[in-house]
């Protein structure tokens, strides 16, 4: 395998491993303390959160949950997956 191929394979493995570990002890049906339910509700309504409003998070989670809901995955589960995706791996290696 070429050096570039090795790097890509390593990056994919790092992404899969980190998301697998992160999701291995997650709860896909329950919301936690404080603002968890607020953001879950707002990602459903596409509404406005407490100051400063967090519009980027709200809209991206709305988009993500809408897309994943097509596959039948529950709303809380989609938000858990959204928040636990190792975005840094995704951004830095898949682009």
């Amino acid at each position: 395998m070429s050096s570039k191929g090795l790097k890509i394979t390593g990056a994919i493995l790092a992404f899969i491993l980190s998301i697998a570990i992160s999701l291995s002890n997650a709860n896909f049906s329950v919301l936690g303390f404080a603002d968890a339910a607020e953001f879950a509700l707002l990602s459903d309504l596409a509404g406005i959160a407490h100051a400063p409003g967090f519009p980027a998070y709200i809209l991206l989670s709305k988009l993500f949950s809408t897309v994943l809901s097509i596959s039948g995955i529950g709303h809380i589960a989609t938000l858990v997956i959204f928040s636990r995706i190792p975005w840094n791996c995704l951004v830095c290696r898949c682009c």
Binding site: E38, L42, L45, G47, I48, A49, H50, A51, P52, G53
Partner: peptide
């Protein structure tokens, strides 16, 4: 909406919300 926070639909309230609102 059945849930709203801060109602930043005027410039004053938008700035208040953006600057941290009651949390500040």
């Amino acid at each position: 909406l059945p849930f709203a926070f801060g109602s930043p639909d005027t410039l004053d309230r938008l700035l208040y919300h953006l600057s941290g609102g009651a949390w500040i």
